[in-house]
């Protein structure tokens, strides 16, 4: 049993798995981009202009700018989550794509690595799409500094793709994912400062928020849009990376137990 949680065996054989998913994505690129972009963008623009016009500046930012920075992180998280949960589960359980791959020289470690990096790449695109909106509206204070949102989006992608793969590994059906959304993703959206500063929350909720990875993502994203170097960005980035690595490892162990026993 403990053998299932041994260290991942790393190799470049994961690349064909990434390419497989990329090829599927390419065929459905237009609806996929629209789906990824339209929803978060409408929230950002609707709330940003509509609600924002009633609100004072927050930390020297317009509400639209404040929300834009949060939306980069939130949109990336959503994309990584949906890809690893629904698409991942369908490849693992419904289409048996992973089973087909395991009959080739690839190992489950390669498959999961390919899925992890693919979901992070795809979610990077979602982050980029929102970043493009920020640029078009000229919300960023410092153009060069806002470029750092790109690696940040990839890091957010790794974090939430890893977490999503853990859920996929233990899920009996698509319905199970509702728990994850209700208990993990929704609290993340509402407590981590996407729509309002965490400092407005009661102390207990602030404490909870500090434990959630999305807070750390937003703690980096918002200063970058505002044009300042984020305080303790190394600490925040490390938290995201650690969540990503640990959950990937856990997901791999759980999937090994599920498929290779």
């Amino acid at each position: 049993m403990s053998g299932q949680f041994r260290f991942p065996r790393l190799s470049l054989r994961f690349i064909p798995v990434w390419r497989r998913n990329f090829l599927v994505w390419k065929k459905l690129a237009l609806p996929s981009i629209l789906g990824n972009l339209a929803d978060p963008m409408l929230y950002m623009l609707g709330l940003g202009f509509g609600l924002g016009s009633l609100l004072p500046d927050i930390d020297g930012m317009s509400y639209l700018t404040f929300l834009g920075a949060g939306t980069v992180a939130y949109s990336t998280m959503n994309s990584a989550t949906f890809e690893t949960l629904y698409s991942g589960f369908s490849r693992m359980h419904v289409q048996k794509t992973w089973e087909a791959i395991l009959n080739t020289p690839l190992e489950l470690d390669d498959v999961l690595m390919g899925e992890w990096l693919w979901a992070a790449s795809k979610s990077l695109l979602s982050g980029l799409a929102i970043l493009a909106v920020i640029w078009i509206l000229g919300l960023q204070a410092d153009w060069a500094l806002s470029l750092w949102l790109i690696p940040l989006a990839f890091l957010i992608g790794l974090c939430f793709s890893g977490m999503g793969l853990v859920m996929t590994a233990i899920s009996p059906s698509y319905d199970f994912f509702m728990y994850y959304f209700t208990l993990v993703i929704t609290p993340m959206v509402l407590l981590c400062g996407v729509f309002y500063p965490v400092s407005q929350l009661p102390l207990m909720l602030q404490t909870l928020s500090a434990w959630l990875p999305l807070s750390h993502a937003i703690d980096i994203a918002r200063p970058l849009v505002r044009g300042v170097i984020p305080v303790n960005w190394i600490g925040h980035a490390s938290v995201l990376l650690l969540w990503g690595l640990c959950s990937f490892w856990l997901a791999l162990g759980l999937t090994r137990r599920r498929l290779l026993e």
Binding site: R20, L23, V24, K27, Q95, K96, T97, E99, A100, N103
Partner: peptide, 11 residues
């Protein structure tokens, strides 16, 4: 050749 077909339906 596995027992159940697991061809890639997207392709």
């Amino acid at each position: 050749v596995p027992q159940m077909d697991n061809l890639d339906p997207d392709f």
